[in-house]
Simulated scan of single mutants.
Amino acid sequence: MDATVHRPVMLEEALAGLAIREDGVYVDCTFGRGGHSRAILERLGSSGRLIALDKDPEAIASPEAQGLRQDLRFTLIHADFSQLKEIVEALGYRGKVLGVLLDLGVSSPQLDNPERGFAFLRDGPLDMRMDPRAGMSAADWLARAGEREIAEVLWRYGEERFARRIARAIVAARALEPLTRTRQLAQLIERSVPRQKWRKHPATRAFQALRIFVNRELECLEAVLAQAGEILAPGGRLVTIAFHSLEDRIVKRFLREALSLHALGKQRPSAWEIAHNPRARSALLRVAERRG
């Protein structure tokens, strides 16, 4: 979901995993800027259908979304993908869907806009919500949470080894002034982590943890995986693209335990793609098929 070239990570591999039929019904659970949706539509015939979801209102209102809405085969819905089953049932496609695609994590347009609060290298409001109209921002949560709770979130969702030290620093800092800006928090973390321990920017894991927690990403992932097994037709495919181990562990465990799906394999991006798109470096694609 790259904002500049509009080419999603592992695009061709995802399309191959979906094994698209011209007359099939497919769901793109993470529309972003429409790279996957556009490519799927190019492979569908006149009787094919594509449903796309996104919880980010900026994605729903983007020029890419408005352009694709002209296609009568395409339906775009502002919703969290944890509502997959409800939406598919309302449209009359339960048990008829031939492919579900999940491109997980944060999109490039979200990272590139400092006003969204996802990135720490440029200053912006400490928000991090994928839907800014719903739920509590990262700043609001950090203003209220206790030190132990903050440390638990940083460890659980970011595997941050200095979680307790960072949590202690956050509580001390907010007693002096509110934490409301991304650079403010990033600089606080920089001061909290010993410089000799830096392998990448010291705020990386903490920002990841806060984003995942604020958006309930792992809980929503568990929900959509279970629902995908119910709405897919026999032989239908589930394709997931994960960008960190927490997501992939959930997918891997689900596929190992699911009775209705069996895993077909996993794949990493090519060396060429990694060279041309550094975001692809950590991607892992998995494909599963609904049993007949």
Rank of each mutant, 00 (worst) to 15 (best):
A226N: 10
A226S: 14
A226Q: 15
Q227I: 01
Q227H: 04
Q227Y: 02
A228M: 01
G229M: 02
G229C: 05
G229E: 15
G229P: 09
E230Y: 00
E230T: 06
E230P: 13
E230N: 06
I231H: 04
I231M: 05
L232H: 07
L232Y: 08
L232R: 08
L232E: 11
A233N: 03
P234N: 09
P234V: 13
P234S: 09
G235Y: 09
G235N: 08
G235H: 07
G236W: 13
G236P: 12
G236L: 09
R237K: 15
R237Y: 15
R237M: 12
R237F: 11
R237V: 08
L238Y: 10
L238A: 09
L238S: 11
V239E: 12
T240A: 12
I241G: 11
I241C: 11
I241P: 15
I241Q: 10
A242L: 01
A242K: 01
F243G: 06
H244T: 06
H244E: 09
S245N: 03
S245I: 14
S245Y: 02
S245R: 11
S245A: 14
E247H: 04
E247M: 04
E247L: 02
E247S: 05
D248E: 13
D248P: 05
D248G: 04
D248S: 07
D248H: 06
R249N: 13
R249D: 13
R249K: 15
I250M: 03
I250A: 02
V251W: 02
V251D: 05
V251S: 05
V251E: 03
V251G: 04
K252W: 00
K252D: 00
R253F: 00
R253G: 07
F254A: 01
L255W: 00
L255N: 00
L255K: 00
